[in-house]
Design a protein around this nucleic acid. Sequence first.
DNA 1: ATTATGCGTAAGTCTTGACTTACAGATTAG
DNA 2: CTAATCTGTAAGTCAAGACTTACGCATAAT
Lengths: 101, 101
Amino acid sequence: MTYGDKLEALAPATRRAVFERLAEGPASVGEIAAGLPVSRPAVSQHLKVLKDAALVTETRQGARRIYAIDPEGLGELRAYFDRFWDVALDQFKRSLEAKDS
Amino acid sequence: MTYGDKLEALAPATRRAVFERLAEGPASVGEIAAGLPVSRPAVSQHLKVLKDAALVTETRQGARRIYAIDPEGLGELRAYFDRFWDVALDQFKRSLEAKDS
DNA sequence: ATTATGCGTAAGTCTTGACTTACAGATTAG
DNA sequence: CTAATCTGTAAGTCAAGACTTACGCATAAT
């Protein structure tokens, strides 16, 4: 839900691999696990974290569950970095001006 | 250096607090530590991680070391999310069209 | 009705890493 | 020169969490 949750969710390499897999298109748990060197339950646990962080959506389709990237949650994270981006550029400009003097 | 390094660097709450402190302006290790509930060595260790991830720059100023946000490194991380942002929106549009049919 | 498929959860293991205190080097002040 | 300041690093502790296997519950197929 918070920025911190989203960042912590995307930090571990394997979980980020799950997320990046979904960037190629929605997929089920089994499909994702098939492309990764970890067990299916591990993928299931990672998806739960991503879902709780609102980075991924879950859609039941019969016995399967299709996961996809949540544009809204991703947008919030993007906005978080944009905020720093603005101040970072501003500070950088100031540091250059300080060197000129 | 990599996206993964940057994301792992910003995941822990305390280290992110260090980074966010630098968004308010460059500061020394002691100044940063004064505003946080952790020891100064802890802050020093966090800054090393942020610096290795190219999210922060270090400038020696006498005995002190001034840290500041690195716009270049932050920009790379921002670009990483923009990449996903594009595909996420595209997928979202497709999912809506699929529902219409 | 059984069997098979797909999945989430519980329980346990084991590594990672965030923190502490103690120490040593480098720079500035008196 | 000596003392004070600012910092990085070493070593050790301890909790968090990324995995595993085992299990149980749904839905789908035969």
